[in-house]
Structures are given as structure tokens and as C-alpha cells.
Design a binder for these strands. Sequence first.
DNA 1: CCATGTCATCCCATGATATCCCATAAATAC
DNA 2: GTATTTATGGGATATCATGGGATGACATGG
Lengths: 154, 154
Amino acid sequence: MAFFLSTFTNKVDKKGRVSVPATFRAAVAGGAFPGIVLYRPFNLACIEGADMAFLERLSDQFYDEFGPFNPDQAALTATILAGAVQLAFDPEGRVMLPGEFKEHAGITDTATFVGIGRKFQIWGPEAFEAYQADQFVKAAEAAPKLRPAKGGQP
Amino acid sequence: MAFFLSTFTNKVDKKGRVSVPATFRAAVAGGAFPGIVLYRPFNLACIEGADMAFLERLSDQFYDEFGPFNPDQAALTATILAGAVQLAFDPEGRVMLPGEFKEHAGITDTATFVGIGRKFQIWGPEAFEAYQADQFVKAAEAAPKLRPAKGGQP
DNA sequence: CCATGTCATCCCATGATATCCCATAAATAC
DNA sequence: GTATTTATGGGATATCATGGGATGACATGG
């Protein structure tokens, strides 16, 4: 499955197009769908994205955890999957962010792509800086909870 | 998985390129990504690096231990993975160190690669000497805490 | 059924920057 | 002594992000 790392800030032109970082495009290349899938997380003011395989796995996870007719499963499915969009790359590797997605993330003319493993996020630059500072503190608290693993933690 | 040993000091040219020690390149060869992955550790003025499999395993460990929407998981991935970079080797086995990484480690025209097992570090030469002297003292204190291992000690 | 405007997609151009490719020199192996 | 590998330097080339114009699809209204 695709893997996303690093942070990139790109411009959104007046047509609403934005270049997906080349490394992210390379990460999803070879998958079933030549593009990315975006959805709005319920608890963050950003856009989340991944390749198609990630969303399929997420859907299966909802079913396996809760069962096919469970209300929790229905709520998560309706919130995340029903509101998702798949965006194809244009020949230059750009996508068009839908208006509702840009509003949800507070994106106007600049978008920050943040790779966080199997998925990535898209933020307005100033919102991301605030979020990142907050997460740094939380990460320092959470790190000791990790169990030892071969190779050690960073 | 890759394993890194020993210390090497190489030049950083005016384009920002630096040769990765040949033994380190050999250690990551055969992996999915022909290069290395770097990130800035919380509490050290250096760069840490490993192969791609190291970060993939770390990321998947976060997901498995905390669940896909857990706040601790989000904090750790946002802090470590978002600040990481993947650097591919050029045909001569060099990589380009990003400016923020060089500044964080105080690297200008010389970089010291330090293999420490499953990962390695990159230091400015004078910062590394000070760090190494400090670690020698701490190692002497820590060694007695090791428990006996089946099969005897080295 | 056709005309029209809107929107999205494609295609080309551009500057910056990173990547490739070749050359050199030192060290090591045979 | 010769051949390889390695680290290093510099010029040439390709890639990437970005902007704008042209072409096409679609729906709406006449």
C-alpha cells in the first residue's frame, strides 16, 4: 500500500488546481486508480487523503469491528466514505480540490500536504503550524506508551 | 532489515550533496526504496536516518497499537512522519540534505555518519565529539542494568 | 433540437532546482 | 602493477511546480 512522508506546501491557482507533491504521486502510482481519494475527517479542520486501497481497508475495518448493520458502522461509513471524492491527476500531476473541501480546511490560495504514513492530510498553512505545535506536545506524552520493538523507537 | 555500524565523515559540497557511506548503502540495498529516510529526533541536535522499512514498521505499529483515529496515534505520526524526508541516492550514492535538516544538526560543509544498529545518525563533526564523550560515561553506568541473556554474553 | 454559457480538461511555456553523467583522485583489492 | 571501488567536483539535462490559453463536455434555456 502507498506510504506518505514529509510536508510540502503548494499554491492553489485561481482555477482551484494544486500540484500533488511528486513523491505522493509516485506513492500511489501502480494502484488501481490513477489519482487520490479525499475525505473530511470528523474531528479535524483539514482534508485527509490516501490511495484507493486505504479506503477499502478502512471500510472493511468498520464492518469487521462493528458488523454490517451496527449503528456505529453506519455512522462512520456515512461520515467518511459517503463524503469522499476520488480525484484524477491532470497531465501535470494536479488535482482540483472541491469547494466544500477547501472550506472545511480553510484553504484559499495555499495548501500544505502532510504525509503521515498510510494516509496524508491537506491543511491551510497557518492552521497546520498551530496543529503541529500542539501535536508535538502530545507526542512527547504518548511516546512512552509504546511497547519496545526490535530496532527501537526514534 | 538494515543494520548500521561504525562512523564515517564525508564532505557536503556546495550543492548540498553528501556521499552516504558505501556500507550504509549496501545495508539498505534490496529494500523497496533505493535511498534512505531521515527525521529530526525530539531531543538531539542531529539527524537520524534508516531505511524505508523502519518507518513503515513504525507507522504500522502506531496504527495497530492505538487504532486509526486515536489521538496518540495522530500525535506521533504527525510529529515524526510529517517531519521526515525520503532521499534517493544519485548514481554515485549521494543524497541532498534539506536545509532545515542541516540547520537542526549544525551541519555546514562536513557530515559525520554514525551507525547505531537499526538506524544511524548524522552530526556536525564537533557536535558529535562532544556527544560521544558524554555517551561514553552514560554507557558505563547503564551496562550493569542489562539482564543475562540465554546463550551467554558476548 | 440547437444555442449559449459555464466549467473542467488538456496543452504548451517558463523558471527554478534537482538529477544525471562524466571526470578525477585516492584507496583498496587482485 | 593493474583493476575496482569510493568519495568528490562540475557541467549538462530532466523534472517539478506554476501560470495561462485553447479545447472540449455538460447542462440550462430558448
